[in-house]
Amino acid sequence: MNTDIKNFIKGIVKENPTFVIMLGMCPTLAVTTQFINALSMGIGVIFVLLLSNIIISILKNLIPNSIRIPCYIVIISAFVTILEMLFHAFLPEVYNSLGVYLPLIVVNCIILGRAEAFASKNNVINSIFDALGMGLGFTLSLSFISLIREAIGNGTITLFPIGRWSGVIKIPILNNSPIRVLALPAGALLFMGYMKALFDYLSSKRKKI
């Protein structure tokens, strides 16, 4: 039980995929212009990561070692295809705004990385907790980046539309004069650079104490 919690927690803070091991940068920077896109991408990654981790840890003894990477890729791409079809059917707006980045979950280094480094060596229960922790860590960092980028860069926060409400929260002062560059691709790279520096600084401070 204790190791389960450890596996779960490590993905959120100590081995956070975005800020510490810096995997899956492409979707991180590309979809974080709106909160809803970042959240859906995070949910998509959790879905694929969880199911592929489960299947790979079940099949780990059946897959020959020399062709394991192609096998993992086939399993992952099968789940990505399922995810694509689910999004297309139930969330068409999100499907359109994620565009090419949705099928690109296949080559997201986090998923293949966890399959290779964790699911192929551990049992199903451990792999489930590892996938949930890593996926949640990814989702949280994506949501955090998108909240700041959208709030400062556009002065809005886009959530799910409920009934008549369009799902867009407008922030009073920022909405009139947003700092546009943060919502643009250049701002994403700048913001990521400063965040990484801040994270390195904070984690080194924690180690000293």
Binding site: A186, L190, M192, G193, K196, D200, Y201
Partner: peptide, 14 residues
């Protein structure tokens, strides 16, 4: 704290 990766991101941003 900006050595290596962070400064690379910032230069890429510019």
């Amino acid at each position: 704290w900006f050595k290596d990766v962070p400064i690379t991101f910032i230069s890429a941003g510019l």
